[in-house]
Measured scan of single mutants.
Amino acid sequence: MKMAVISEHLGLSWAELARELQFSVEDINRIRVENPNSLLEQSVALLNLWVIREGQNANMENLYTALQSIDRGEIVNMLE
């Protein structure tokens, strides 16, 4: 549920979040190519990849820290 809210509000910031979460330029470009027409779909794809990559370590605290690092703390505030 929280992931959906984050995806809805990320907009163009999804790529900046991807870099903050240590995704490569290739990963970011692949997300763009696979989801060409929708920032929402790109955001969802990023968060899904992050959960798959991090497994047990994919917790909201880590995601909140990354969001705050890219000056998107207002998204965190909405969810708390």
Rank of each mutant, 00 (worst) to 15 (best):
K2L: 07
K2R: 12
M3R: 12
M3F: 15
S7A: 15
S7T: 08
E8A: 09
E8F: 05
H9N: 13
H9Y: 06
L10R: 01
G11E: 15
G11T: 06
L12C: 15
L12V: 14
L12I: 15
L12T: 14
L12S: 15
S13I: 01
W14K: 04
W14L: 04
E16N: 15
E16P: 11
L17T: 00
A18Y: 01
R19G: 08
E20S: 10
E20V: 09
L21W: 03
Q22N: 11
F23C: 04
S24W: 00
V25W: 07
E26W: 09
D27G: 04
I28Y: 05
I28R: 04
N29H: 06
N29A: 12
R30S: 10
I31R: 03
I31D: 00
R32D: 05
R32F: 14
V33P: 02
V33L: 13
N35P: 01
N35V: 09
P36T: 04
P36N: 11
P36C: 12
N37E: 13
N37H: 06
S38R: 05
S38F: 06
S38Y: 02
S38K: 06
L39Y: 13
L39D: 12
L40M: 12
E41T: 09
E41M: 07
E41D: 13
Q42L: 01
Q42T: 02
Q42I: 00
V44W: 13
L46H: 03
L47W: 03
L47C: 12
L47N: 00
N48M: 04
N48C: 04
N48Y: 02
N48P: 00
L49Q: 13
L49W: 06
L49F: 09
L49Y: 12
W50L: 06
V51G: 13
V51N: 09
V51H: 14
V51Q: 15
R53F: 00
R53S: 03
E54F: 03
E54K: 07
G55I: 03
Q56C: 09
Q56S: 11
Q56A: 11
N57G: 13
N57F: 05
N57Q: 15
A58T: 09
N59K: 13
N59A: 12
M60P: 08
M60T: 07
M60G: 01
E61W: 08
N62H: 12
N62Y: 13
N62A: 12
L63Q: 11
Y64M: 09
Y64D: 02
Y64N: 15
Y64K: 05
T65Y: 10
T65W: 07
T65G: 12
T65P: 15
A66L: 00
A66F: 00
A66Q: 05
L67G: 01
L67Y: 00
Q68L: 13
Q68C: 08
Q68H: 13
S69D: 12
I70G: 00
I70S: 03
D71T: 06
D71H: 09
G73A: 09
G73N: 06
G73E: 08
I75C: 02
I75S: 05
I75M: 08
I75L: 09
V76K: 07
N77V: 11
N77C: 05
M78A: 13
M78V: 14
M78N: 13
L79T: 09
E80R: 09
E80G: 15
